[in-house]
Amino acid sequence: MAIRAPYRSLRGISAVAALLAIGAVGCSDVTDAVDSAKDSAKKVARQRSVFSLDVGDCYNPNGKAEGTAYTVEIVPCDEAHEGQVVGEFAIDDEGKEYPGDDGVSTIADTRCPVEAQKYAPDTWALPKGVGLFYYTPTKESWATGDRAVSCTYTAENGTFSGSLDTAKSLKPEQATYLKGSNAVYDALWTNQPEKETVEEDLAGYKAQAKAVAAALDAHVKGLDGIEGTEVGKLRATLTKAAGNWQKAADAADVDAFYIAYDPAFTDIDPNMSVAARKELGLATTVPADEAEVWAG
């Protein structure tokens, strides 16, 4: 399996070998060597094949460079670790042939965000610096029947502690809010046209606007059943936003699209939802990458 993450061939050292290597040294050195050997032995005992990863597993990759991986160190989630498996799925192998590295990555790019949100719906609550990575089949493992993709949240630098499994602890109103909110931004980014300007692809941008408008309509309906002053204010804002996204979707020309798009985009600024999130008891810090987009 391959991952946008580390690889290093596994090389363990037993406690006996470590002790034989220290020679005639002081007691403190011996103690340090024993402790080091114990740590090494523990790490070896925790090694698991990437083919047997399960959702919920917390782990440390064996290395720091992106490439092919065969094993990872499984650790208790309350210990500091670099990643956690938050979703998994099998690639449809109807065509039988390996889709290619880019093809497999495209599938994972599409499916992993969906699977991850089932496990950790509130992306605002993720530890700082954690990103979505995945283990996927290689051409060689595909030939042996490997079709599994393991989706992980992995720290790009450093470690984090605790499980990211928050779905089970959500209250009904929190889950409803997150389902609707996530769908809105998924519609925005997954339907992003390849062309950089509306002039180059008006039809593509109108299709995106249609998808966002539909997601907003569903989100607003979900919010209808949730009480709260700030939630009510957000509902009103998003209702207006949905109308403008629909106007953009129906635009007869580029100028009409821009007139509707500017307020439509502004009204789904994540900062608009901070007060409602606080009222619902959800995370209130806008992720840096999202804040940057709406900062201009």
Rank of each mutant, 00 (worst) to 15 (best):
G83Q: 03
T71I: 13
V55W: 02
T154E: 03
A143I: 04
A242M: 04
Q117V: 09
R8Y: 07
D39N: 15
N191H: 14
A283H: 00
G67H: 14
Y135P: 02
A213N: 01
I13R: 15
A148I: 03
Y70D: 12
A5D: 08
T197K: 13
G100W: 14
T68C: 09
L170E: 05
V198P: 13
Y70I: 06
A175C: 09
L178C: 07
Y261H: 10
E199C: 05
F257C: 01
I13N: 04
L178D: 01
V16T: 11
T166M: 11
E290F: 13
K118D: 10
D262V: 12
A236H: 09
N60D: 10
A264R: 02
E290W: 08
A125Q: 09
L132S: 11
Y261K: 07
Y59H: 13
D146V: 01
W294L: 09
K210Y: 07
I91Y: 05
L53K: 10
E97K: 10
K168A: 11
A15L: 12
R4I: 02
Q47H: 15
V231H: 02
D146L: 08
P6V: 01
P263K: 00
A256W: 03
D253Q: 11
G296R: 12
V50T: 06
A18R: 03
A218W: 05
D39E: 15
E292Y: 08
A21H: 01
A24F: 12
Y7T: 06
W142E: 07
F257G: 00
P137F: 01
E200G: 06
D57S: 13
S169K: 06
E173Y: 09
R111W: 06
V130G: 03
D92Q: 12
S141M: 08
T144Q: 12
A18Q: 08
N62E: 10
E79M: 12
A295L: 14
T138S: 15
D201S: 08
K206F: 07
W245T: 02
V30I: 14
